[in-house]
Amino acid sequence: MNPYQVQNAQNKQIMKKAREMGIECEPLIPGCEDFLELSYRGKTIVINKTRSHKMPLMAGLLAKNKDASNLLLRRRGLPVPDYIVVSQAGEEAVRFLNTHRMVIVKPLDTSRSVGVTLRIDREDDLENAVKTARLHSEQVMIQQYVEGTDFRVLVIGGKAIGALEYKPAFIEGDGRSTIEQLIRKLNEDQLRRNSVGDAGSFQPVDVESKSLLMHLQELGKSLQAVLEQGERVELFSGGNILADGISEIVLDRSEDISAVNANIAVEAAKALQVDVAGIDIRCRDIRLPLNDENGGILEVNALPDMIDPSLFFQGASTDVFQSYLQYLFEE
């Protein structure tokens, strides 16, 4: 099957890179993209996108359950922000909010940002966030909000391949362009596509969205305002917001992450026995070791995205799909 006929972006890149490397690669079941069968030098394996044949079943189950994941991470001495698990916004949830002043709420056993609400600092918002999370999971995790920025470290076979930073979209003035022009330029720069036409995770900022226009109005600005040189405008408000509604700028921080934090990411993957993982970290400074003041691990993803790393990791030596395929056939 031609990679261009495959629908899943990860599978397209795996098939394309495999053939470049002389590896036979086809869907195991014609018309089904859940499994790819790869053959190389007399060895045949079956994988599920970026989930390898080497990962134990238990590892995937542990990674999906945030409570179990955090327990094992803490046992290994790794930094995890304080949290509780509840089924409703009762007294325990309110006490936790009052203790930490700001929290995030997320479904206990879902992946990505579905049902996640950020920056909650009021009881009524907490109740609404718990209701939203319970649409996706019977139990809900309420976690201490960590000041800083989100990072994703890609780990393959016990090695930290690189790190990406995800920042809520912002624009910076040049003294000539309007806010609308700067937003359109941001969309063009971030909406990168690979050789088979698939884009990364960036959600283009809608210049006509009501939330954006209201946010600009609160700042005393409009789409036609011209920003001064170096003037920065955040495109999303600082209040509580659903995580999947935020457009995030992606930046390569592979050269900036400290050796300590890279090792923490590797240890986090090992703690859950996940051989190919995306380690979500939130911290103030990725160059400094994680601790109570600088942040911690938010999640271990057992089916990590490799499209963003393939688009944003810089340097010819960082080919994430090649690294993945080489690992699959390592003895």
Rank of each mutant, 00 (worst) to 15 (best):
L28T: 12
L108E: 02
R76P: 01
V46G: 07
S113M: 08
V103F: 06
A63C: 12
D67W: 12
N70A: 14
S137R: 11
L126P: 00
G77P: 05
T99N: 06
R134M: 03
K54A: 11
R112G: 07
S39I: 09
K49P: 00
V94N: 00
M58H: 10
R119K: 10
E33D: 09
N128L: 15
D34T: 14
V80Q: 00
F96T: 06
L78D: 05
Q88M: 09
P107Y: 07
A133P: 01
Q88H: 10
K54W: 10
E92L: 07
N65A: 12
E127A: 10
T50F: 08
I29E: 10
K43T: 08
P30F: 10
P81Y: 10
G115L: 03
G77F: 11
S111D: 11
G31I: 06
P79A: 05
V85G: 00
L118K: 08
L73S: 02
K49N: 05
P79S: 08
E123Y: 04
M55G: 02
D125W: 06
N128Y: 15
G115V: 05
P107K: 02
V85A: 01
S113W: 08
K131T: 04
E33N: 08
K66R: 13
G115I: 02
E138C: 07
L78P: 01
V103T: 02
G77R: 06
A133G: 03
N48R: 14
K66Q: 07
E33H: 10
H53N: 15
S87G: 13
V130Q: 01
T44W: 05
K66T: 05
S111L: 11
S69T: 11
E92W: 03
F35Q: 13
T117S: 09
F35A: 15
P107A: 05
V116C: 03
Q139Y: 11
S111R: 07
H136T: 03
V80L: 03
K49E: 02
C32G: 13
S52Y: 09
Q88R: 12
M58G: 06
D34M: 12
N65D: 15
I29H: 13
G115E: 04
V105C: 00
S137H: 12
V105T: 02
R122F: 10
D109R: 09
L36H: 03
A68D: 11
C32L: 14
N98E: 10
L57N: 12
R122H: 13
Q139T: 14
S52H: 06
K64G: 14
T50G: 01
M102G: 01
R101K: 14
K131A: 04
L118C: 07
D125K: 02
K64H: 13
I45Q: 08
L108I: 07
P56T: 05
K54Y: 07
A63V: 05
Q139K: 14
L78I: 11
A133T: 02
Q143N: 08
L61H: 12
R51W: 12
L36V: 12
V105D: 00
R101Y: 11
F35D: 12
V114T: 11
I47K: 01
M141F: 04
D121K: 03
A93V: 02
S87W: 09
A133N: 01
M55E: 13
N48S: 15
R76E: 14
D125T: 07
E127D: 10
E127H: 08
R95F: 05
K43Q: 09
H100P: 02
E138A: 09
V85I: 15
R122M: 09
V130E: 00
V103I: 12
S52I: 06
S52F: 06
I47E: 02
E138F: 11
